[in-house]
Computed example of a mutant assay.
Amino acid sequence: MGGHAISTLFVDLFTRKFPFNEFIKQCAFMASVAAAPTLLVAIPIAVTVSVQVGAVVSQVGATSFIGAVNGLTIIQQGAPLVTSLMIAGAVGSAVCADLGSRTIREEIDAMKVMGVDPMRRLVAPRLAAAMLVSVLLCGFVIFVGFLMGYLFNTLMQDGVPGSYLATFSAFASSNDMIVALIKALIFGLLTAIIACDCGLNARGGPGGVANSVNAAVVTSALMLFATNIILTQIYNTLFPVELV
């Protein structure tokens, strides 16, 4: 189903048959259900990272590098992981519940009888919307996480603002941001595929929809964490850290 949906998405984009109205509607819906939870999770994650990093860095006497360590931790791992959890929990469950309810009401079968392809009308716009919203959420988490880490370090840990920013800019690169956004794009794609597949194969009435939503969330979370490990290892292999 994933391959069919992706091919349909690209074909519709090139042939100008892509349902942009449904795409915009899904983008607005996904952003509305994921933005607030993402903000509420990003703030404590950033503060926790700042506390733990500050404690470790202070023990080894490298407080001047806390900006680099804190910022890179948030960009490389914190933001993608928070995004994966929010995409799997908020967006994936909503998409699966929507398609699952349509399936048990036999709306999907009715669309097929009328000659309407569910992949083109329902799945492809959700794939594109999930990828876009996931990238935007990742950028949002990076901004909020870095800002909260900076404020917590300068206000609560007596850090030096100039040193925090200088060390971060010295060690961070554009590749870190690009890889984080690519991770978010892949996370959104995988979550949408899993959620749509579980929703379109829901059986057994409302109870079956609930089971499909649970399966979609759990499967998505496991898949995204495993994918994050693979992508991180590939990035570290292709772009090893250079000692300065």
Rank of each mutant, 00 (worst) to 15 (best):
residue 202 A to Y: 03
residue 174 S to F: 14
residue 86 M to K: 10
residue 126 R to K: 06
residue 143 F to W: 13
residue 199 G to Y: 02
residue 194 I to A: 01
residue 8 T to M: 11
residue 95 V to W: 01
residue 201 N to K: 13
residue 109 D to K: 03
residue 243 L to V: 14
residue 232 T to L: 06
residue 53 V to S: 13
residue 26 Q to I: 10
residue 126 R to C: 00
residue 191 T to S: 08
residue 181 L to V: 12
residue 139 G to K: 10
residue 159 G to D: 08
residue 195 A to L: 06
residue 213 V to D: 03
residue 14 F to N: 01
residue 126 R to G: 03
residue 74 I to V: 08
residue 95 V to N: 07
residue 107 E to S: 01
residue 221 A to H: 01
residue 141 V to K: 07
residue 26 Q to F: 00
residue 4 H to P: 05
residue 20 F to A: 05
residue 96 C to T: 15
residue 226 A to L: 15
residue 2 G to R: 08
residue 211 N to P: 01
residue 165 L to A: 08
residue 234 I to T: 08
residue 119 M to L: 10
residue 121 R to V: 06
residue 91 V to R: 06
residue 58 S to R: 15
residue 187 F to I: 12
residue 93 S to H: 00
residue 44 P to C: 11
residue 146 F to P: 05
residue 127 L to T: 07
residue 169 S to Y: 04
residue 74 I to E: 06
residue 198 C to L: 09
residue 148 M to Y: 14
residue 166 A to R: 15
residue 13 L to D: 00
residue 161 P to G: 09
residue 156 M to H: 04
residue 139 G to F: 01
residue 79 A to W: 00
residue 125 P to Q: 11
residue 101 S to I: 07
residue 76 Q to M: 06
residue 31 A to Y: 07
residue 49 V to L: 14
residue 57 V to G: 08
residue 105 R to M: 11
residue 196 C to K: 12
